[in-house]
Design a protein around this nucleic acid. Structure first.
Lengths: 227, 227
DNA sequence: TGCCTGTCGATTGGATCCAATCTAACAATC
DNA sequence: GATTGTTAGATTGGATCCAATCGACAGGCA
C-alpha cells in the first residue's frame, strides 16, 4: 500500500481500503466515458497505474461486474460493457420504473430546503455548458426529489441507474439537441411543491418518454454499430 | 482447486471458476435462509468448507456485497444482511416498480407455450406444501410472464429482487396465512392471454399491495427485533 | 490453398505468505 | 468499582508466487 493511501487521503474523499478506491475510481471512469466501452481492463496494467497489486483490482472488478459495468469471461478478463441501443433502452426502462416509484414515495417528505436546492440546480443547469457537469447537475436534481423516499435500497438502485445513464449522455444530448428537458424539470418541481404527486409523476414519465424516443430515433438514424 | 471442480461438475450446473461456484452457492444459501441473517462469514472458515483458498471466497463476497446480500466492514469482514421491516418494504417497493414494467413490455410477446408453462406452474403451486419450493414455483411463474420483455438488464434485475423476496418468504407466508395469492395469479394469466395489459398490471399491483400490507401488519404485530 | 495441430507468450485464476487492524481479555490507575 | 491503557490472538487486506487457460502463429498434412 505505502504511498497510495496518502494520495487517496489527500484527495478529498477518504477511502478505507485500496479496493474501495479502485472500485470508485474505475466506476467513475467507466460512467464518464474516460475508459471507452469495449476496452479490455488488464489487471496487471491497472495494478501498476494504481500502484497496488492485482488483488484489490480483481475485487473491484468483481464488484463492477455485479453492477453490470464490465463483462467477465473466464481466463479472458474484464471488458468495459458496450453501449448499444438495447442497453440504452434497457436503462431507460429501468429508470422509468424506479424513478416514479421513488418520486411518489418521496414527495410527501420533501422540505422547503429540498425545493430550494432543486431550484438552484435548475438554474445551474441553465448556465452550464460542459456536458459532463450538466449530467451531474441533472442527476443531482433528480436525486434531490427522490432522496426523501425513505427506502435506502430503492434510492441507491435508482441513483445507480441514473448514474449509468451518464454513459449515454453524449448520445442523449446529440439526440435531443442539447435540451436537458428543463421545462419538464420546472413543471416537476412545481408539482412537487404543491404536493401534486400524480402530476409530478406524469411529468417525469413524459420526461423519460421524450428522451427515450429521441435516443431511439437518433441511434436508428446513424446506426449503432460504431462507437 | 483439485477435487472441488469434480464435485461441482458432477452436480448438474457447470461452473467455470471456483469464484462463480462460491458466489452462486452462498447466494442461494443466504436467500433460502440456510445461512441466517447476521451471521458473520469468516473467510478462512468458508475456504476450508469449500476446499478452496480464501481468494475465490473474497471475490465472491465482493459480488454479494454489490448485490446487497452481505455487509462489508473493513477489517471486520462480511456479515449476512439483517432482515428488517424496512428491508422488506424496500424490496416490495422495488419489485412493485420493476415487475409491472417488465410485465407490460413482455405481454405482447408472450406465446401459447408461455401460457401453458404458467398454467402448469399455478397448478403445481396448488399442490405444493414445502414453503421453499413454493417460493421457487412462485418465482418461476412470475418470471415466465416477464421473460419476454426483451430487455435483459430489466429482466435480470427483476429476477434478482424477486429472488431476494425469498428471504422474507417465511414472514410472508405467516403474514398471509399460507395464501400465495393464487386467485391473482389466475387473473393475471387470464389477462395476459387476452392481451389486456392494463388489467394484468392492475392485478399485479393488487398482488403486491396485498402482500406488502399483510407483511407490514405482521411485522408490526410481533415486533421486528427478533429473528 | 486450406485446415488441423502443437507450441509459446500473455494473462488470468488460485494458493500462499506477510502486514495491518480489530477484538477481547487483563492490568493499572483513579 | 469503573475506566483507561496494554498486549495477544484472531482475522482481514494486500503482495507475491505458481498453475491453468487462451490466442496467435508456425508448421505439417491432405
Amino acid at each position: 500500500m505505502s504511498g497510495l493511501l496518502d494520495v487517496i487521503q489527500s484527495a478529498g474523499t477518504r477511502y478505507r481500503t485500496a479496493t474501495e478506491f479502485v472500485e470508485a475510481t474505475l466506476r467513475e471512469a467507466i460512467l464518464s466515458g474516460a475508459i471507452a466501452p469495449g476496452t479490455p481492463l488488464r489487471q496487471e496494467e491497472l495494478a501498476t497505474s494504481f500502484k497496488v497489486s492485482r488483488m484489490p483490482i480483481r475485487e473491484a472488478l468483481r464488484q463492477l461486474e455485479a453492477q453490470a459495468l464490465v463483462d467477465f469471461e473466464p481466463h479472458r478478463g474484464a471488458v468495459v460493457v458496450q453501449i448499444t441501443l438495447l442497453d440504452a433502452m434497457d436503462n431507460y426502462a429501468i429508470r422509468a420504473a424506479l424513478e416514479p416509484q421513488a418520486l411518489r414515495l418521496s414527495i410527501p417528505n420533501l422540505t422547503a430546503e429540498d425545493f430550494e436546492i432543486a431550484e438552484d440546480l435548475i438554474a445551474e443547469i441553465d448556465h452550464e455548458q460542459d456536458p459532463g457537469r450538466m449530467g451531474e447537475l441533472n442527476r443531482r436534481f433528480h436525486m434531490t426529489l427522490y432522496a426523501q423516499a425513505g427506502l435506502p435500497r430503492l434510492i441507491a438502485l435508482t441513483e445507480q441507474h441514473l448514474a449509468s445513464a451518464d454513459r449515454y449522455l453524449r448520445f442523449h444530448l446529440a439526440a435531443v439537441g442539447g435540451d436537458m428537458g428543463q421545462d419538464e424539470h420546472r413543471e416537476m418541481l412545481a408539482a412537487c411543491r404543491i404536493g401534486d404527486v400524480e402530476r409530478a409523476v406524469a411529468t417525469l414519465a413524459r420526461h423519460h418518454g421524450r428522451a427515450s424516443e429521441a435516443m431511439q430515433a437518433f441511434f436508428r438514424a446513424r446506426d449503432v454499430s460504431r462507437d
